[in-house]
Amino acid sequence: MAVVQGFAPMLAGALIVGVFVSILTGVESIGVCNGMTGDDLPPPRDVVQLYKSSGISNMRIYNPDSHVMEALRGSGIGLVLGVINGDIQGLAASQAFAASWVQTNVRPFYPDVKIMYIAVGNEVEDGVAQSILPAMQNLEGALAAAGLGGAIKVSTCVRLDVVTYSFPPSMGTFAKPYMAGIALFLATTGAPLLTNVYPYFAYKYSHGDISLNYALFLPGTTVRDAGNGLIYTNLFDAMVDSVYAALEKADAASVRVVVSESGWPSAGGTAASVQNAQTYVQNLIKHVGQGTPKRPGPLETYVFAMFNENQKSGELTERNFGLFYPSKSPDIVPKLYRGYGTSLLSSSLT
């Protein structure tokens, strides 16, 4: 099939949603990230309606978009509200800026919008990372001053590369010195550590050392961690438990992990296919209710992402993680369209 730039990836990515919708209802530990780096996305009210009609109870957004916040009023959808990386240093340097941020982005909406966490940055790198903790502290103080102390938890979203020696999982320890202070802060406030966990990328860059079945939650691989005696049958559990091991070594064993992103691309790179994306998302949703070998019990997890985002930079896979078509037009592939989004709710998913 000829590939029209920006269209074929959306078609492929949307095909996994039937599996997603069919098993999602009643799975309270699952949410979906609502990325907005695209020029063809539905309006926020339509997106919120699609979350509700699909039984998706939680949403993550990456910046405090007022249109999305208004659309969420009264929806009952739990929200992870993001602070853009560009605001972190300002928040760290100024309590007044933190107070203004809360008064602008939180106070007008809460509790009509069910804000659960504020995520101070996403996968922050370089020198800005040193500002994460003071920014978190200032936001925590601003929430308390606004009468919201304890009601909304303040955290940050990290990549798994903040952990070194992630295999075996029991060897996990924080590779970045600033993480020790963040971990202790979270332990003090009772907030979780938001962690982006992608078996896809670990598999892709493993040069054959990791099997595809192990990355997709499929049978065939069993790994025993000699450090703690636990048995691992999938890469996702091993990755999450390496973060728990790092938290323990940072004297923050009480901190729980929330998986703030996880997904599999449907096109654009190594092992990126509709079938693999279907398999990963379906198995992820089924699996997280039981937790990991180290921490059994429901593991709050956010699938990335609601839509393909045609303006994301980087490799083509970055634009192919969506569960739904962005377009509302019924003219492209009529049988696949339903309502404002696009879902394949039948044949090819069985």
Rank of each mutant, 00 (worst) to 15 (best):
S329K: 05
I30F: 04
A202I: 00
L186H: 03
F167Y: 13
G13M: 01
L230A: 05
A93F: 03
P169T: 12
N122K: 07
T317W: 06
Y178G: 12
P298E: 05
G13S: 13
S242P: 01
G35C: 02
Y340Q: 10
R73F: 01
L186I: 12
S94E: 07
K153T: 03
I77Q: 11
V303R: 01
S273Q: 05
N283G: 00
A245F: 04
D241W: 03
T195Y: 12
V47R: 13
L72S: 03
G268C: 08
D87C: 15
S75E: 04
G18P: 12
L299S: 03
N234M: 07
P111G: 00
A92R: 09
Y337T: 10
P134Q: 15
P334R: 07
I84E: 15
M116P: 02
V106W: 03
K176G: 11
F185M: 13
G322K: 08
Y340G: 05
N213K: 02
P169K: 13
A14E: 15
G289K: 11
Y62G: 10
A271F: 08
V3Y: 15
Q290G: 06
Y203W: 07
G322N: 05
S170K: 05
V102I: 12
A191E: 02
M306E: 12
A202H: 08
A99M: 01
E125L: 15
E123P: 09
N320A: 13
M59H: 06
E248R: 15
P296M: 04
Y340D: 07
L148D: 00
S347P: 10
F201N: 10
Y203F: 09
V288Q: 06
L218G: 11
G149R: 07
R319A: 00
V48P: 15
I23Q: 07
R338W: 01
Y117M: 09
G322I: 00
I77T: 07
G31Q: 06
A226S: 04
I182S: 00
L139I: 12
G55Q: 04
Q275G: 00
V243L: 02
M116G: 07
F20G: 02
A191C: 04
S262H: 09
A96C: 00
K335C: 13
M239D: 01
L160H: 10
L24D: 14
G147R: 01
E248C: 11
I30Y: 06
E300H: 09
E309C: 00
A99L: 01
A146I: 09
D40H: 08
Q130D: 15
E318G: 01
A246I: 07
G18E: 06
V259F: 03
S29K: 12
S57G: 14
L230D: 02
V80A: 07
G263C: 00
